[in-house]
């Protein structure tokens, strides 16, 4: 083990695996990472065990990149462990940053989630009564599995976080830029910074033409043939671009899909979803309450649109039913 090399660990909490893949997506740069770093854990590519991390001295790791949200006690346990063992803790990707897609589960209670997943789901055996329990008595002792929390947390709800790299997943170029900076030994930005992203909204980099916005009808992307030159929001497609940091490379709008908001809120914004809702409702072109209702009914699942990534980190945080 060469101590001059950067000591790093990557981990996934409640995640889909995409963030881990995004690091691989840096292509041959991965060889530079391997040359510059000792990788102690990286679930998708490297066989690091929890006990190996536990055996390290506190603060031994130069960098821990945690992706995924905190959904259960295991996620939280490893978050604490990595925090203890590393000098710099990075929340990598939307889930660690603001809760991500798993955070949408916060609109339901744990009981509702279990009922839907284990009891009333067409893909499970009829009459199933088994739901996960943290402890189960069996012959020969007690079995335990991680406890499923009442809600999803973002990473900095449970541990101190130094930097945030947003995105679902972060754009490989941004991942590369941040890792290069750390490897180069140059001074790091102030603690708490969102790195690998712009300080302006996506509209800054989106090449579609923007005009004044007066919406008479909302559409889902497949419902209309869109004008590829024109702002998607002006065409009635709910695009989160104006409420979302740029930095992704405008991947979605350039592929004729609206921005979904994965790069999270702008620097001054407390609640990205609230911003999406208030801006979308601001551009409806009607004064008539009935017509407004009709126009709004064109948006299916406003919570899903506005809080697709930010529910756990929002002012709402979760359903309190």
């Amino acid at each position: 083990m060469d101590k001059k090399k950067l000591q790093i660990a990557l981990y996934w909490g409640a995640a889909c695996g995409g963030c881990d893949v995004s690091v691989l997506d840096t292509n041959e740069f991965i060889l530079d990472i391997a040359a510059a770093c000792d990788i102690h854990m990286w679930p998708i590519a490297h066989d690091g065990k929890y006990k190996d991390i536990e055996a390290l001295e506190d603060g031994f790791l130069d960098l821990a990149m945690y992706n995924g949200a905190v959904r259960n006690s295991e996620n939280e346990h490893i978050a604490h462990l990595l925090r203890k063992k590393s000098k710099v803790m990075v929340a990598y990707g939307s889930c660690a940053h603001i809760g991500g897609i798993p955070g949408l589960a916060n609109t339901f209670t744990r009981e509702e989630i279990f009922e839907s997943a284990y009891l009333k789901n067409p893909s499970i055996q009829e009459g199933n009564k088994t739901v996960p329990q943290p402890q189960t008595e069996v012959d020969g002792g007690e079995l335990t599995i991680p406890a499923f929390y009442k809600r999803v947390y973002k990473l900095d709800d449970v541990v101190d976080v130094d930097y945030y790299i947003p995105g679902c997943p972060p754009a490989p170029e941004q991942c590369k830029a941040v890792l290069s900076l750390i490897v180069s030994g140059q001074p790091l930005p102030p603690k708490g910074s969102v790195v690998g992203a712009s300080e302006r909204a996506l509209c800054e980099d989106c090449q579609r033409k923007k005009d004044e916005k007066m919406i008479k009808q909302f559409f889902r992307p497949w419902q209309i043939i869109q004008d590829p030159e024109k702002c998607l929001l002006e065409q009635g497609i709910v695009c989160a671009g104006s409420a979302t940091r740029s930095g992704c490379g405008v991947r979605c709008p350039d592929s004729n899909m609206p921005c979904r908001g994965c790069y999270g809120p702008m620097p001054n914004v407390v609640d990205q979803g609230a911003k999406i809702i208030s801006s979308v409702s601001s551009i409806i072109d009607s004064q008539d309450p009935e017509e407004i209702d009709k126009i709004l009914s064109g948006i299916h699942d406003i919570t899903g649109y506005a809080y697709r990534f930010g529910m756990a980190g929002s002012l709402l945080q979760r359903s309190v039913r």
Partner: peptide, 12 residues
């Protein structure tokens, strides 16, 4: 420095 020229405010 924060405006991205999205024009949501223009008609408001």
């Amino acid at each position: 420095d924060l405006c991205s020229g999205c024009r949501v405010c223009n008609e408001l």
